[in-house]
Amino acid sequence: MALRTVRRLLRVDHLVNMDTRSVLGCLPTGPVPDAVGPVDAVDPAGPVAGPDVVSVSALRSLTSWLIDAKQRCPWQARTVPLSDVRGWTRTDTEIAADSGRPFRIIGVRVAAGTREVRQWAQPLLAPGRPGLAAFLCRSTASAPRVLVRARTEPGLGDLVEVGPTVQWSADTGPVTAEEAGPFDGMALTGDPARVRFDAELSEEGGRFHRAATRYRLVEADEALAAERLPDDYRWLTAAQLHALVVRGQHVNVQARSLLACLAAPASPA
């Protein structure tokens, strides 16, 4: 299939799977440069020389930003026996929270004649609702930019990776207006003139049961460009984001999917 065709199909709900989106997000956003460009001392969001060239100083700045985010993270992750976990009930077919958690761990038995193993049993995480992943976008004189967040997640190998502006899972999405993040309302705008991409796409099916995420690219309010951002947010070009992707374990899977969606043609037709 032509690359443009695959990218166009991203706009069709539940058609292009997570692994394909992640690979598409690893593709360069433009011609691969032979060398890095000069330093742009004016824009603290990241020096660039043209939309597809990333300077050495920009990568150093982004790496330092992520290191600072990791140092601020107070979390420590450890494994615990299931027998020590409180507030969950186990039956013959699932482990479910007594209250407050909209996901379950279910047991499944699978038979598939097209796989290397014909049948097996395994646990799957079953969300109770779709998640949300969104980039706020804006245009600048040098290159379009997306607002990313240095996001802490307990399952990550190094605790912090670059993620979308807004990211909810079934378990972390706000329930009330008071729980909403600073950019949630903007990411969920109903103004069609500001929505560049909006599709519900399936997540990885080997570990999750019918998990889906609504992926959105939304033009930010003009006033946001002049506002001081929280320390864990930063405006990046697609080329800067791709430069972090190729380093490995710097950009989470939702942001890689959105990076692929940035290159999706305007219509699925």
Rank of each mutant, 00 (worst) to 15 (best):
P102V: 02
S55F: 02
E204H: 14
L124T: 05
W120T: 05
V218Q: 03
L124C: 02
L10Y: 09
Q122A: 09
P164H: 03
P102R: 11
P268I: 03
V56Q: 06
L236I: 08
A187M: 07
R234D: 04
P268K: 01
Y215A: 11
S139T: 13
L9T: 11
A199S: 15
R196H: 13
A255N: 12
S57A: 15
Q240I: 09
M18V: 09
L132H: 06
C137S: 05
F197G: 03
G206C: 05
L236N: 03
T63P: 00
R109P: 00
A96M: 08
L217D: 06
V42K: 12
R109T: 10
L10E: 08
G37T: 10
G173T: 00
S61N: 04
P127W: 05
D92C: 02
W168C: 03
G181C: 06
R196C: 07
V32S: 12
D232Y: 00
R234L: 11
A121W: 10
P44Q: 10
T29N: 13
R210W: 04
T213I: 13
A226Y: 07
E203A: 11
G163Y: 05
G25C: 10
G206M: 10
R60A: 09
V117F: 07
A238E: 14
L3C: 05
V146L: 13
L156A: 09
P182C: 04
T91S: 15
E204R: 15
L229I: 06
Q119A: 14
I95D: 00
L62M: 13
P74R: 11
D221F: 00
V110S: 10
V162D: 02
V53N: 12
E153Y: 11
L258Q: 09
E153G: 06
P81W: 08
L159N: 00
T176P: 02
T165G: 01
G131V: 00
V253W: 03
T29P: 01
H14T: 10
T93E: 14
P123S: 13
W168P: 01
R214H: 13
A239H: 11
V48F: 06
D232N: 14
W65T: 01
R109A: 12
C261I: 08
S169P: 03
Q119D: 14
P51R: 11
A266P: 00
V39S: 14
D171C: 03
G205F: 01
E219F: 00
R216Q: 07
V160W: 12
V162R: 01
L262P: 06
T213G: 07
G100Q: 12
V162K: 01
P164N: 08
W88C: 03
D198Y: 04
R247W: 07
T237I: 13
L236A: 06
V162P: 01
E227V: 10
L27H: 04
R196G: 06
M18N: 14
A96W: 03
I106Y: 04
Q76D: 10
V246E: 10
E94S: 14
R72P: 00
A126I: 02
R129A: 15
P51Q: 10
P164T: 03
G30Y: 06
S55H: 06
R7A: 11
G100F: 12
A69I: 09
F197S: 01
L124S: 04
L229T: 04
P47C: 11
E219T: 14
A225M: 08
A111T: 13
A69D: 08
